[in-house]
Design a protein around this nucleic acid. Structure first.
Lengths: 220, 220
DNA sequence: AATATAATTAAACAACTAGTGAAATAAAAT
DNA sequence: ATTTTATTTCACTAGTTGTTTAATTATATT
């Protein structure tokens, strides 16, 4: 269900739908928190962008902070679900690792909201992500997949680097994250918008090449 | 002059020192804006952490926004100065590019404040960096150096990739930036703090290897 | 030394913001 | 038919926050 669906479907059958109300609040709040951060977001503004009222936000979520945490949890859960749909089981390691890199590349581009939430969390030392340990979606499927591909690649003798899944993930994520999240200052500083449509395929191939060349090369 | 110097030197000779007052406000404001962002920072808090009063901030900087822009300008200028002190003129291209990568790596670690300011700027679509065009420090020395090294490397036949300085810079910066700025969520999500002292040399070498292997490998 | 200028302090203002309380309404569930 | 639950309205508080008015005093100038 998208926000638009939730909005348009409303009132057609039921005048009251707690699930839909909660969903809409959460969806709007996610956008607001992603765009302005926890401190910058305004409860009144979130309420105004929903079909419901500020009072309902407190009715269902209790406080601005609990609403914020709820958006974080939902966003992490969504990422986990997305990653579960990737399958590189039967591919050769080089193809598989490139595919995982491209998947992460696409995910960042398709869902900048998540990256923005993450960025804001880091700017406040991840206080809410850390506080809510037992956070759902913390075992990220992508890591398991990377581990298998790396093991496979080493067994086949095509990967020669002594590096584990977490660091490969960091290498891939950093590039994809930076391209999306630092788009504006990069464009302002260097006169090149890295998210410009025409350059997309260049960067998508680039991160794949970077990872493949690194893993397949030998330490000196 | 550091903040500490400005604080301790104060009052020894003169009770009033506009330059020192301005400097201290700017230094404290930079920390506050870097830590909390423009919206999250509090003028009262900035004032409280200086030796002077809130009124002086308005006396010298006019508004919170102009103070913020001043910290941005100062920070960019500092980076430019730092980059000007790098010299890779007489090194072979592979050594030079690795040195530039390591320089950027070190710079991010030594100055997380700048990265945080940049991150916050991006979260608000770089509205202030963009607005203040004619911004000082926008021609970054590192780009010129990368251009020369890349040209040299291609002339020598050791670099085979068709990639320009800006994209190499993005590859290097993204890794260094992510390691520092996404430290907290990365640690919370994956149980590994990428800024932990013991892992520093691994990542420092890794970004060098990644860039060198990518540039020296051939497109397929 | 007298005066003017610039730096500094103290306090107040006005707008904003998260959260609450209370009361009323009515759709759904029982 | 009755109870429960979801929803709206709206005024209000208590605390915060960016900004300003006015008075004070150190330093520079004449």
């Amino acid at each position: 269900m998208t926000i638009e669906e939730a909005k348009t479907t409303r009132d057609e059958q039921r005048l009251r739908d707690p699930e839909r109300t909660k969903f809409e609040i959460l969806a709007v709040a996610t956008q607001e928190f992603a765009n302005r951060g926890f401190a910058g977001a305004r409860v009144d503004e979130i309420a105004a962008k929903t079909r419901t009222t500020k009072r309902m936000i407190y009715y269902y979520f209790g406080s601005k902070e609990r609403l914020y945490v709820a958006t974080l949890e939902k966003s992490y859960e969504d990422i986990r679900v997305t990653e579960q749909n990737v399958d590189v089981e039967n591919l050769d390691p080089v193809t598989a690792i490139r595919l995982l890199a491209e998947f992460t590349f696409d995910r960042h581009e398709a869902n900048p909201t998540f990256s923005r939430l993450v960025s804001h969390e880091n700017m406040q030392n991840a206080q809410f992500v850390t506080a809510a340990s037992g956070f759902p979606g913390l075992e990220r499927p992508i890591i398991k997949m990377l581990e298998q591909v790396l093991e496979h690649g080493r067994a086949d003798g095509v990967f020669h680097r002594d590096i584990d899944a977490l660091d490969v993930h960091m290498l891939i994520s950093s590039f994809c994250f930076f391209r999306i999240n630092n788009r504006y200052t990069f464009a302002a500083n260097f006169g090149r918008d890295p998210v410009e449509a025409g350059r997309r395929s260049i960067y998508r191939q680039m991160i794949g090449d970077v990872v493949v060349e690194y893993l397949t090369s030998s330490p000196t």
